Simulated assay, not measured.
Amino acid sequence: MHFLSDELDNYVTQHSENEPELLIQLNRETHQKILQPRMLSGHFQGRVLSILSKIINPNTILEVGTYTGYATLCLAEGLAENGTIDTIDNEEELFDFQRKYFDKSQWSSQITQHLGDGLDIIPTLNKKYDLVFIDADKENYINYFHLIVPMMNKGGIILSDNVLWSGKVLEELNPKDVSTKVLLEYNQLLKDDPRVETVLFPIRDGLTVSRVL
C-alpha cells in the first residue's frame, strides 16, 4: 500500500536532505545484487533516521536487522564521539556486503556486527542503550521489546519499523497471518505499556517512536 501518491512522495523526498554519496552507492548495489531490495530503508526514511539520531546524539545504538547496512549508516551519523553501534542480522551471506560499506564510512571501528538470532544475542550485550531500531523478524517484535526496554537508558528512544505492514493492520485478520497478528498486538502494547510514551508516524511503512520513561 502506498500511503502517499508517487507525486507527493517525490516532493517530500526532494525537499528533504540529499542522500549521501556512500548511501547512493549502497542503495544502487543493493538493488543490483541483493534479493528483496524494497527492504532497504531508502532516501527519505534514511534521512528521518539520520536526523532523529542527530537529535538524540546517542552514545550507544542497537539495531535489530541490518540487511545491507543502509539504516545502520544513517543512524551512525548521529553518534556521539566514540559512540558505538551493535547491529544484528542472521543472514550470513550479507555479512561481507555490510562490512564493505561500513569500512568505507567514517564509523567503521564503531560498528560491531553480530551474526545470529537476535533473541539469543541481545541478552549477551552488556550495555545500556540510548537508541534502538527494531527492523527484523516481525513475529518477535514483542519479544524484542520486552528484552530491550530494561536495557534502555532513561529517555532512550526505541524506533520500530513496518508497524503499518502495508496497510494490513486495517484489514480483516487472516488467522494464518502471524506477522500481522503480532504487529497488531505490538502496536497496542506500545500504546498501553506504562514504561514508554509512543507516537506512530505514517512514514513509509509505518515508524513508531517510543520514549522510555
Rank of each mutant, 00 (worst) to 15 (best):
F3E: 15
L4N: 09
S5E: 05
E7I: 12
N10F: 08
H15Q: 12
E19I: 00
E19A: 01
P20Y: 02
R28L: 12
E29Y: 11
L35H: 15
P37S: 09
R38P: 10
G46W: 00
R47A: 05
V48R: 02
L49F: 00
S50Q: 07
S53P: 02
S53F: 03
K54V: 03
K54R: 07
I55A: 04
N59R: 13
I61L: 06
I61S: 07
V64S: 10
T72L: 04
L75T: 01
G78S: 02
G83C: 01
D86N: 03
T87K: 01
T87D: 00
I88Q: 04
I88P: 04
I88V: 05
E91G: 11
E93N: 14
F97T: 01
Q98I: 03
Q98D: 07
D103N: 10
D103I: 02
S105P: 02
Q106E: 12
S108L: 03
S109C: 04
I111P: 00
I111A: 05
Q113C: 00
G116M: 02
G118K: 04
I121M: 06
I122T: 04
L125V: 02
Y129T: 05
L131C: 03
L131H: 08
V132K: 12
F133G: 04
D135Q: 14
A136C: 13
E139P: 12
N140T: 12
N143Q: 14
P150E: 12
S160K: 09
S160Y: 09
L170C: 14
N174G: 11
K176M: 14
V178R: 15
S179W: 10
S179Q: 15
T180L: 08
V182K: 12
L183I: 11
E185Y: 08
Y186L: 01
K191S: 11
P194A: 11
F201D: 03
I203S: 09
R204F: 07
T208Y: 12
V209Y: 07
S210P: 10
